[in-house]
Each structure stands twice: as structure tokens, then as C-alpha cells.
């Protein structure tokens, strides 16, 4: 049975899309077939991390929502090639991305006309079935709207990404409480962009006590990933980097 993992942040800028792309890649390296769907239809972005250019997208999630294709036709194999020091992968893992359209006209159409959010439910199921997925990662829109609530309600695991910041903490608490009301059992928090010198154990204690949910990882604010500037999947480029090791731990906790 495939596992649906919704990745959510209350605010933007937490590194949600980058983290999602990296975790999906690391789970695929472990031999899993991983779907990633960008439901951040108002401000799509994860395709950039995977290096999928707009011209290379024959169909997008928008086309599915407007009835112009089946959802699996919008899937693009974006499995990053093995990086230096990584042997060729023997496992049959893959990352399949369903991007949202980054064209201003499509974004404007979604804003002005809206779409049937319920179609997403059918879409997620069809994707898992047609692509034979082990995991489906849903990269959601920041904040709380119908798409995010639906993604949360459908998820087996909700991964909340926040920075060590009071506004993130307050906002994430709202999502945690809503997820509890939607009976999400498996709720985990990833604290990202932790600045150097911060007492990580104190921080972990505060988050776990505040949300009554486990912290699955605490990743540092890192200059190398910032320099990469979303122009690639960090874990594939730098498989031996300490940040990749941290991401790998998070990925293995999601797998277990």
C-alpha cells in the first residue's frame, strides 16, 4: 500500500520544496518509486529544483484539473543522476514529478476561476495506481486553504517544516491542531534552517512540547544549499555533505 506524505509549511521560505525534492530523491535511492505532486498551484516551484524546464512539460497538474489529460500523463521522470562517489543505483527507484504550470496565464486562471479541489482526491489515487508508487509526496501551498486541508486529510504522514521562528511556530501550531481534528495519526516536524549557535536540544524540547509531536530532524542553515539556489537536488549533487547526511537520516525515519 502506497504511503501519502504531505509536506506543509505555514509560511513560505522554510525550504519546503527543496527538502521535499531531497527526501524524495533519497527514498528513491533506497529503491522506492516516489511520486511528487506540486499542489502549490498558485506559486509552483519544485520543478525548478528537479531541473524540469517549462518547455519540457507536455502536461501539468493544471491540464489534469481542466480535463485536458489523465493525471499520469503529467508525470515526468526527474530521477537525479547519481552524483560523484555514488555508484550506479541497482535499485529500481524513481522520482516522478507532477508539476504545476509556472505560466502566468495558468496561475491567473486558477486564481480567477478556481477548480474542483475534489478532483485532486481522484488524481492522487490514480497516480498511485497507474505509476505503481510506493510513496506520494504532496508539496502543498503554504498557509491553510482547501487544497492543503484536503492534502492533510488524505495523508498517512504529515511532515511539517518550520524554521526556528515564532511566527512559524505559531502558524505550524494551527496546522498541527487542524491535522489532529482530521485524524492524521502520523505527524512529524522538521525544523529547518537552524542557525549556528542555537541550542538545538532546547529547541527540540520546545517544539515537541508545544506540538506534542516528534521532531524528525533538525537541519542547519546551510550556505552550500543556499549557493545551489534551487538549481538542483542537493543530496544528489553532494552525497557526502553533512547536510545530505542529515537529510538521509530524515528519509530513513520516513521509510521505517
Amino acid at each position: 500500500m502506497a504511503k501519502i506524505v504531505s509536506v506543509h509549511s505555514f509560511r513560505g521560505g522554510t525550504g519546503k520544496s527543496n527538502t521535499t525534492a531531497n527526501l524524495a530523491t533519497l527514498i528513491a535511492r533506497a529503491g522506492k518509486r516516489v511520486g511528487v505532486i506540486d499542489t502549490d498551484i498558485h506559486s509552483p516551484g519544485i520543478h525548478v529544483v528537479f531541473g524540469l524546464r517549462e518547455e519540457a512539460m507536455e502536461f501539468t497538474l493544471n491540464d489534469f484539473l481542466w480535463g485536458r489529460c489523465r493525471i499520469e500523463q503529467a508525470a515526468h521522470d526527474v530521477t537525479p543522476p547519481a552524483g560523484p562517489g555514488e555508484g550506479p543505483s541497482e535499485a529500481p527507484g524513481a522520482v516522478l514529478l507532477i508539476p504545476s504550470s509556472a505560466r502566468a496565464g495558468e496561475i491567473a486562471r486558477v486564481l480567477s476561476e478556481g477548480y474542483d479541489v475534489g478532483l485532486l482526491t481522484d488524481g492522487f489515487r490514480a497516480l498511485i495506481r497507474e505509476l505503481g508508487l510506493d510513496y506520494l509526496f504532496i508539496d502543498t501551498h503554504p498557509g491553510v486553504n482547501e487544497e492543503t486541508l484536503l492534502s492533510i486529510a488524505l495523508s498517512d504522514t504529515l511532515l511539517l517544516i518550520m524554521r526556528p521562528d515564532s511566527q512559524d511556530f505559531q502558524g505550524t501550531a494551527v496546522t498541527v491542531e487542524l491535522a489532529r481534528r482530521l485524524e492524521v495519526d502520523d505527524l512529524r516536524v522538521l525544523v529547518n534552517k537552524v542557525p549556528p549557535g542555537m541550542d538545538v536540544e532546547l529547541l527540540r524540547g520546545q517544539v515537541e512540547a508545544g506540538f506534542k509531536a516528534p521532531v524528525i530532524g533538525m537541519l542547519p542553515l546551510d550556505h552550500d544549499i543556499a549557493r545551489l539556489g534551487s538549481a538542483g537536488v542537493f543530496a544528489a549533487r553532494y552525497p557526502g555533505h553533512p547536510l545530505t547526511q542529515g537529510l538521509r537520516q530524515v528519509a530513513s525515519r520516513l521509510l521505517s
Binding site: 509560511r11 498558485h42 506559486s43 509552483p44 502566468a104 486564481l111 480567477s112 503554504p142
Partner: peptide
């Protein structure tokens, strides 16, 4: 971008759609 958080139950409307929260991409 900018995040619009509506604190009024009246909401905001873009065309016929009511929103209580919306992130605006710089492109939009």
C-alpha cells in the same frame, strides 16, 4: 511573494471565489 491572511469572516474575493488565505507568487 506575499501571503494574504484574511482575518474577517467576510473574506476576500478574486472573481467569484472567496479566499481566507492566499499566497501570491511574485509573477501573479
Amino acid at each position: 511573494g506575499w501571503l494574504l491572511t484574511v482575518v474577517s469572516p467576510q473574506g476576500i474575493y478574486c472573481g467569484p471565489r472567496k479566499f481566507l488565505s492566499l499566497r501570491l507568487d511574485p509573477r501573479a
